[in-house]
Design a protein around this nucleic acid. Structure first.
Length: 213
DNA sequence: ATCCCGAGGG
DNA sequence: CCCTCTGGAT
């Protein structure tokens, strides 16, 4: 019998009844969240968290970040990949926030994506987590989930995003973002998915196709 | 060898 | 669609 991907039931199952998930990537201010996500490209959450701890201790605001300067920023993030481009982006992005937005993180997509280092995914993280807008940031974890669960099989990140937006109840959209990322990070892992401890297995066919019991 | 809360460019 | 940028973890 074919299981049907029920996104609501799936989300309720993997959420563990936690309506307000908080993670190590729960930053103090919208600015720090934005910078952290810009730094997160092709880097693990743990490594990003490690460098942002020292970076934000010295430069918690865009003013302080501009004062710190690109070279000093680079020196503090060299343990993660792509640090050259990221240091340049964070310095310029901070400058532009001051110049264009009074030092505040803008709440509209066009303004966000006009910042260096900020693409659709990063803009969606800010729109979802900071402004509570109907946006889903499809990172590598959520993209993988979208394909494995049959929500948007063999599709593009944009198609996964649209499918999630269409099918996730509005009041679940914000917590769902973190639920899905954490689930992809720790359970529905890229190399060794642990279907046997997935609470959403009843709404997913991936385990049946890959793990023959 | 593969992957990580991607972006930018061809 | 493709490619490059990059270090650390597994």
């Amino acid at each position: 019998m074919m299981k049907r991907a029920d996104i609501r039931a799936f989300l309720e199952a993997i959420s563990g009844g936690n309506a307000n998930p908080r993670t190590e990537l729960d930053y103090a201010t919208p600015y720090q969240l934005l910078v952290a996500v810009v730094l997160s490209a092709q880097a693990t959450d743990v490594s990003v968290n490690r460098v942002t701890r020292t970076l934000f201790a010295d430069a918690p605001t865009p003013q302080a970040m501009v004062a710190l300067g690109e070279a000093a920023i680079a020196q503090r993030i060299k343990s993660i990949g792509l640090w050259q481009a990221k240091a340049k982006n964070v310095a310029m992005l901070s400058h532009l926030l001051l110049e264009r937005h009074g030092g505040e993180v803008p709440g509209d997509r066009a303004a966000l994506e006009a910042l260096p280092g900020v693409g659709r995914k990063t803009a969606n993280v800010v729109l979802n987590e900071v402004f509570g807008q109907p946006a889903m940031a499809v990172d590598t974890h959520i993209f993988r989930l979208g394909n494995r669960t049959g929500l948007a099989p063999g599709s593009t990140p944009r198609a996964v995003e649209d499918a999630l937006l269409k099918r996730i109840p509005k009041d679940m959209l914000k917590p769902a973002h973190l639920w899905l990322i954490l689930h992809g990070r720790y359970v529905c892992k890229a190399r060794t998915p642990e279907c046997w401890r997935c609470p959403g297995a009843a709404y997913c066919t991936y385990g049946e196709k890959t793990i023959k019991a």
